[in-house]
């Protein structure tokens, strides 16, 4: 952690991500207005003291909606990455550690998943599972498994032949103990930056899927949905799209900088 803090990009990323997460946390308990409350008399107002980011076509407060939307997007992305990471750790750990037939079979499956454009595959899965927030998490989670599994597999295979692993084996440690206690901690530094990058992909995928209307359903906000709603009022209320877009950019930029700071030492 200390060595990361010396990196400028990492510090900048930490600051941006910190601000975003703080805003999201506040948004969970308090927003200036009810994000779904409409007001006929305040349609499409520009940014003002009363409405920081202005209002949308139903007179809803965009600031409140962006905060809550960012929260929804964040949660979906985090959950999808968590699924991908956990399954990826197990699959990658086992294939890297044992090799052999299991490795061949699982890695070829991973290859075939990676061969498709991820959005297309996610849409196919949504078509099977149905629309909605939770299905998006599952679909994206499954999509993230192969890339995590690959990274973990390579690292585990590398660590497997080190002297301390041999030593642990001779001491009588079981395979599972070696894999999860002796090897896994050593691959975390490598994984951290791919987690940050994976998170970014998840944010973008959620935004695209909600933009296409298969993700978070109305009236709940998410960054992708807000953007698709804003699209219709691009010239009457440009602030709508701008503030939503800025929120997406900040979320991604923050994690991108973190990943960069951790990866490029």
């Amino acid at each position: 952690m200390k060595q990361y803090l010396k990196n400028k990009n990492f510090r900048a990323g930490l600051l941006i991500t910190g601000i975003m997460i703080l805003a999201i946390l506040i948004g969970l308990v308090w927003t200036p207005y009810d994000p779904n409350a409409m007001s006929g008399s305040e349609k499409l107002q520009g940014p003002s003291g009363a409405h920081l980011f202005g209002t949308d076509n139903f007179g809803r407060d965009i600031f409140s909606r962006v905060i809550q939307g960012a929260g929804a997007t964040f949660l979906i992305a985090a959950a999808a990455v968590a699924i991908g990471l956990i399954v990826g750790l197990i699959v990658g750990g086992l294939t890297g550690f044992y090799g052999g037939v299991l490795d061949e079979v699982l890695m070829r499956i991973a290859d075939s998943i990676l061969a498709f454009p991820s959005i297309l595959l996610a849409l196919v899965m949504i078509a099977i599972l149905g629309k909605g927030k939770y299905n998006i998490i599952i679909a994206l989670g499954i999509l993230f498994v192969p890339s995590f599994a690959r990274i973990v597999r390579t690292e585990v295979a590398k660590q497997k032949n080190t002297d301390y692993v041999r030593n642990a084996r001779l001491m009588g440690a079981s395979n599972m103990r070696i894999l999860f206690l002796h090897i896994m901690p050593n691959i975390i530094p490598v994984l951290l930056s791919s987690v940050a990058i994976g998170f970014n992909n998840a944010v973008l995928s959620e935004a695209s899927m909600s933009y296409l209307g298969v993700g978070v359903q109305p009236p709940d906000p998410s960054l992708g949905r807000l953007l698709s709603e804003a699209q219709g009022y691009l010239f009457q209320a440009p602030w709508y799209a701008i503030f939503t877009g800025v929120a997406i950019i900040l979320l991604i930029l923050g994690f991108g900088l973190l990943a960069d700071g951790m990866g490029g030492e």
């Binding site: 080190t162 002297d163 030593n167 001779l170 440690a173 901690p185 050593n186």
Partner: peptide, 24 residues
């Protein structure tokens, strides 16, 4: 094998840099 080797044999490798787990 595990139950006889662990208590019965110890090993010291050539590279002291690599034979201890760096994160433990």
């Amino acid at each position: 094998l595990r139950s006889i080797q662990g208590p019965g044999m110890g090993v010291v490798f050539q590279e002291p840099m690599n034979s201890l787990n760096p994160l433990i």
